[in-house]
Design a binder for these strands. Structure first.
Lengths: 348, 348
DNA sequence: GTTAGCACTCGTCGAGAGTGAGTGCTAACA
DNA sequence: TGTTAGCACTCACTCTCGACGAGTGCTAAC
């Protein structure tokens, strides 16, 4: 499609613009990127590149800026994202592997790691479509009127919730009740708890039957909440450092979008493609993001479902570095999941 | 100190400036606040107010702006903060009381409520100086190699942590061990766990002695972490909406400060005075906040220690409303703590 | 095909004029 | 003596205009 020189010139324009956020002129390229030709020649080539729609001018005497199509070409054909530098990889490992001892922290820590390493806002969503099942239930005494319900799910997520009762049973009773609940409910998802099963338990509970209903109700709520996909962000404040968001109103819009669960899911879209996807400027479905780029990847946990990790930046974001970090993080997610025993299949 | 007219004029200046963020001129006051005198008279009075240091001009032909001293006077002598409107009070109640079933959520929810009701960034710190004691320990089976340690402290905070072992004991053993741990450790703070006590437990643990040490270690870590005062923020993005922070660099500085634990504590200072304190502009010790105001209040949990809730805004923040909300929140904290059984004494 | 030269474009910056909001002072009035 | 109308003055803000310069496209020569 492009001859070698045009290729190099486009590459120079994209790289320079990513670095400086200033339109790139022909003289800059001639001086800084030493292609062995004069600026006039470069001007001619740039004119051709503009005809191809790969770069554009803000006004007739400004330098050139890559267009969405130009970035697309850059990303598809000439970007090489190096493997993470050793120190970065190490930092990542420390951040993730050492911080994550429980799966519910994985998303948050992953988001943190992504944004710290790239200085772009990061979004991480949990896998969905899973149907959480009960792995273990434990009742713990708190005081005269309340007990603590600890729930461990099959995805190794731990939740706890205080249950208020008119009179809480003592420790020994709670231990017995815990055992009973486990025997009856362990391995079941919320839909599998039948009326019959509840009736049997009520009978077995005997005098303590009155505590069963609130406990079951709260357990159901907790699992339901667990089935809701959670989504985390980190490093949102970084958008303030991008010159393209010096318009405060724009920055605030994005702030809002990144705070709102619903719009986060809109941004992430439905995960279908696998691998790392780069969505540039106008390719975004959301108007709000038409001046931004989105780099995202899906990851699969077992056959539980697919989650998404993503970075948001200006169109001139450092795609190469962002992709490096993203794939590094993906790899680390695999490690963490292996360590937590949550993975059989592969991640995309 | 001030005659009635000067008083009213100062009040008009402060109110108008809080509302519009524009310097207030004599004609504006004459028209809008109908004091029955001409703008010339008001000019004379304003000149006097300026001599008193209560208002100031940015330049010789601009309107007047309240000085720190002016705000101080306003806050001390003429501000009346109405009780919360019914709908606000209700909203607050829904936000707090319904969301808080465990004490560890109280701070976060309180911060959220504060910032939502005021549109100012909120900071909430936990009480400190407490020495957390163990109330209950429960070991829960997870899988072959790990168990879950659930710790309930005397402040009713629930923490859990996965403990990895080479081979995890089964459910029955864990139940027995839990009982043993509770008998020995319940009511003790970290310092009170003696060598002797540990030795006795090791003996009693018998063949399962090897799981004791990691459990004790992690328990100690958890209590230690619990003794660290936590601090939460909410609504930080609101600073973007204040015209006084249109300087992006300034906004970012504050963003940073509100993200950093250490600087948050610097902002809050050491809680000594009780009641709601208002710190205006230059009265702030921190340079960063010399153009901001801080409204804060301390609350005491039992005799555990004192925490702090605070709002940050521009100097022309709506003190009356902020104070209303803050005292409403304080009251609700009392309710929540009563509901959680954490309060004997009063809150300041 | 490449390049030097040149005219042209257009955003940016700074100076200068006009505008208007606001002030302080003064003199007159009740 | 307090209040007010009138007026000169100040100064931020806006607009315009010219100079400047970075950058372009075109042309002619190599």
């Amino acid at each position: 499609m492009l001859n070698d020189r045009k290729f190099k010139i486009l590459q120079a324009i994209v790289n320079d613009y990513i670095e400086t956020a200033e339109p790139v002129g022909s003289r800059t390229i001639a001086k800084k990127y030493g292609l062995g030709v004069s600026s006039a020649t470069i001007r001619n080539e740039m004119s051709d590149l503009e005809d191809l729609g790969l770069i554009s001018q803000l006004h007739s005497s400004s330098g050139r800026v890559p267009s969405s199509k130009g970035y697309r070409f850059y990303v598809d054909s000439m970007m090489q994202s190096p493997a993470l530098a050793e120190e970065e990889a190490l930092l990542l490992q420390r951040m993730l592997i050492e911080n994550i001892r429980q799966s519910e922290y994985m998303m948050q820590e992953t988001a943190k790691a992504l944004s710290r390493l790239t200085n772009y806002p990061a979004i991480v969503s949990e896998p969905y479509l899973k149907k959480t099942a009960i792995k273990h239930i434990q009742l713990v005494p708190l005081d005269e009127k309340s007990i603590l319900l600890v729930l461990v799910t099959d995805t190794k997520t731990v939740k706890n919730q205080v249950v208020n009762l008119s009179a809480a049973p003592g420790y020994d009773v709670l231990t017995k009740l815990s055992a009973l609940l486990n025997r009856r409910l362990s391995g079941l998802s919320i839909r599998e708890i039948s009326r019959e099963c509840i009736d049997k338990m009520l009978a077995e509970f005997g005098e303590h039957a009155h505590v069963l209903m609130p406990i079951l109700g709260i357990t159901a709520d907790m699992i339901q909440a667990e089935d809701d996909v959670r989504v985390y962000t980190s490093g949102v404040k970084n958008i303030l450092t991008f010159p393209e968001f010096s318009d405060k109103a724009k920055a605030e819009q994005i702030f809002h979008a990144l705070e709102d669960r619903a719009s986060l899911f809109e941004i992430l879209g439905t995960p279908k493609a696998s691998g790392i996807q780069i969505i540039i400027g106008e390719e975004n479905a959301l108007d709000l993001l038409k001046s931004c780029s989105l780099i995202k990847a899906n990851y699969t946990i077992d056959n539980q479902g697919t989650g998404c990790i993503a970075l948001i930046g200006p169109m001139r974001m450092d795609y190469a570095q962002a992709v490096s970090v993203l794939s590094g993080v993906l790899q680390n997610i695999r490690h963490v999941m292996d360590a937590l025993g949550l993975r059989n299949g592969g991640t995309d």
